[in-house]
Design a protein around this nucleic acid. Structure first.
Length: 171
DNA sequence: AGTGCGATTGACT
DNA sequence: GTCAATCGCACTA
């Protein structure tokens, strides 16, 4: 969930990728630096970075303090504040509002100022549950990386149309 | 100090 | 379906 001056925007997370300890594709692989230090915070903190010049990416640190690992949030099924997301994204295509990590951050206006915040308590950006049961989860290879690309570390809700990536990988 | 390369997106054929 | 834009960061010299 995301609190903005214009109101609250929120959605269900329908797609993630894991970047565990020792993963050569992970940003923490080469040790702690100024950029990735948020990955080394206690699990549940935000790690935000910029890829390809623009496009922010949102990760959640996933290990105890001092250990570098995280989960990339790749896609959201919009549930609240849809008009806010449409304005942030410059489109009214519901399916495209938060399908993809860069789009998700644009829709919720997530930038480097949120790097390192605690996501486990209500705040400008936080994680919560809507009480609804999760759908059936599928696993497959991660998207857009070259190293360790074959590890099945991408997880998604089966059949959900807000999941990014080729349709063939989402069955 | 210079270079190469992405955890992507949007526009175009 | 294909392809270029774009820039911060890590690595080499």
């Amino acid at each position: 969930m995301r609190t903005l001056s214009g109101g609250v925007a929120a959605g269900r997370i329908v797609e993630t990728e894991a970047y565990p300890v020792g993963d050569p594709a992970g940003h923490a692989y080469r040790g702690q630096t100024e950029r990735n230090e948020a990955l080394f915070l206690e699990r549940g903190h935000a790690y935000v970075y910029i890829a390809y010049g623009d496009s922010s990416m949102l990760n959640v640190s996933s290990e105890k303090a001092g250990v570098g690992a995280g989960i990339l949030i790749r896609a959201l099924e919009p549930t609240d504040g849809i008009s806010i997301m449409e304005r942030n994204r410059g489109t009214e295509q519901l399916r495209d509002l938060a399908r993809g990590p860069g789009r998700l951050c644009a829709a919720l206006r997530i930038d480097l100022r949120l790097n390192g915040i605690d996501l486990c308590h209500e705040g400008p950006l936080w994680l919560g549950s809507d009480g609804r049961p999760a759908g059936e989860i599928g696993a497959g290879r991660r998207i857009g990386i070259t190293r360790a690309a074959d590890s099945p570390l991408r997880f998604y809700v089966r059949g959900n149309r807000f999941v990014s990536g080729p349709q063939a990988l989402n069955t």
